[in-house]
Amino acid sequence: MHEPVIAPFFVVFYSILAAISAPANLLAFIILLRGRCGLSRGITYYLVAIAVSDFLVITTAVILNRISRICFRKSLFSTTPACTLSVVLVNASLDCSVWLTVAFTIDRFAAICYQRQKTRFSNEKTALLVIGMICVLCSVKTIPLYFAFLPLFILDGVSWFCNIKASFYTWPVWQAYDWLFRIMTPFLPFFVILLLNILTIRQIIAANRARRRLWGAENRQDPEMANRQRSIVLLFAISLSFLLMLSPVVGHFIYVCLKAKSDFDGLDFRNPKYIFEESTNILQLLSSCNNVFIYSVSQNLF
Rank of each mutant, 00 (worst) to 15 (best):
F72N: 10
I134N: 01
D265T: 13
F161Q: 14
P151G: 09
S241E: 06
F253R: 11
N227F: 08
A18L: 12
N65M: 08
Q221K: 14
V158K: 03
R182E: 04
G132S: 04
A226D: 05
L196I: 10
F109Y: 14
T170E: 10
K259P: 07
L286S: 06
R182F: 03
N123V: 10
A92D: 08
L26W: 11
I282G: 08
S296P: 02
L214S: 15
N290A: 04
F147Y: 13
Y146E: 02
A49T: 03
F55M: 12
Y114W: 12
L100T: 01
Q117W: 12
N300C: 08
C162Y: 12
L180I: 08
V250G: 09
T44A: 12
K259H: 11
S93Q: 00
L235C: 07
F181M: 07
S288K: 07
S262I: 13
V57G: 00
A206G: 13
P144A: 06
T126S: 08
R213W: 12
V48H: 01
Q284L: 07
I63L: 13
W174K: 06
K118M: 09
L258T: 15
K273R: 09
F29P: 00
I50C: 09
V52D: 04
S288R: 00
Y14H: 03
S241I: 10
C135M: 14
S15L: 12
A82W: 01
A49Q: 02
S247A: 15
C289S: 05
W160F: 13
L100Q: 06
L194C: 05
V292C: 06
I275T: 07
L258W: 07
P248Q: 15
V173R: 03
S53R: 00
T200C: 03
F236M: 07
F276H: 10
T170K: 14
V12S: 02
T280Y: 04
R41G: 15
G251L: 04
P172N: 08
W99G: 01
W179D: 10
I232R: 13
T105M: 08
T185M: 07
F72H: 14
R108D: 04
W171Y: 14
S279F: 11
A176L: 13
V140K: 13
N123C: 04
T79M: 05
P272R: 07
V250C: 04
W171I: 09
S40R: 05
I282Y: 05
T170G: 12
A49W: 00
V98M: 15
C83H: 04
I70W: 06
V256Q: 12
S86D: 10
L64T: 15
V130L: 05
F269V: 03
R69W: 09
S78P: 00
L196G: 02
F153S: 15
I164S: 06
A210V: 08
S68L: 03
C138V: 09
F191M: 14
T101W: 06
I193Y: 09
C257Y: 09
L150Y: 09
V158G: 01
L56G: 02
K273C: 05
V173D: 01
